[in-house]
Amino acid sequence: MKEVLLEVKDLRLQFKTDKGELPALQGISFQLKKGETVALVGESGCGKSVTSLAIMGLLSRANAQMEGSIRFRDILLNQLSTGELRNIRGKDIAMIFQEPMTSLNPVHTIGRQLEEVYQLHTDLSKKERQAKAIEMLKKVGVPRAEDIMREYPHQLSGGMKQRVMIAMAMACNPDLLIADEPTTALDVTIQAQILELMNDLKENDHTSLLLITHDLGVVAEMADRVLVMYYGEIVEEADVVSLFSHPKHPYTIGLLRCIPDLDEEEKLRLDPIEGSVPLLGEVTQGCAFRFRCSQAEERCYQEKPPLMATGTGTQAVRCWLYENKEMAV
């Protein structure tokens, strides 16, 4: 059994707005072990990004009210002061964002932005920082690293910018890397390169990866375990093989049906899930997916299903269809 690096327990989050409090996360619990890659999957608005921002402590404390606990190694992140959190951010936990185009500061050189990480978290001299930054750029496969140091973000392509972002995130050799849709904004060929790069770095540095994505192709490629999220809740949790071979939750099944399959001849059209994720605060009782679920029963409208073990390994699902099923297996 590997050591648990990150443990999120019953994480609840409410956004304070003019229209009252909106529940963004309704009790998320999961673990991330050392060296493991866990994928958070779901449509836009299901709470994936919010979860990552909560772990990083990047949500404004004035607008977001948080309950539950986030433990990293033996530190309770949600109880740290802003100053203490700053020492962890960028050093032990680092993050890559979705938009490489806008995530780098347009008025600073690449070198300055990369060196800043060392400036914030190490005692290295200016010369050493520069050497480290160049080394890091080479490590993430940026050609002419010495020249790029002096260039500005607008002189780089999207793929190169994301490589720089990865270099910045991996600069201090973090234990945990959170990647929020790292390849969504990139061309398909570049996507594959970036994913490969992330996998290589992760293997070499024994970094754990929390990967946030809506792309099941990326999940299959990268993840050890998968958490499917819907409306601020985890609706299915499974290792990657179980999830793809026998998905349980109707939502997961729906998501998998959305992937175009080139081998299957009869399936000429995509099979999307009708409707969209309910707005925050819209569902007050029952299962949040019932509106889009073809198998919804009377009970789904009244009672919210708990996350239930299914009997197949560690797979768990939040759906009444699987109540008592574990007996049968």
């Binding site: 990083m56 100053g83 951010r89 806008t102 500061n105 914030l120 978290h121 910045m168």
Partner: peptide
């Protein structure tokens, strides 16, 4: 509101 400000925060800058 820009993304690069969040990047700076994620780096651990004050």
């Amino acid at each position: 509101k820009q993304d690069y400000m969040r990047t700076a925060e994620a780096k651990g800058a004050a």
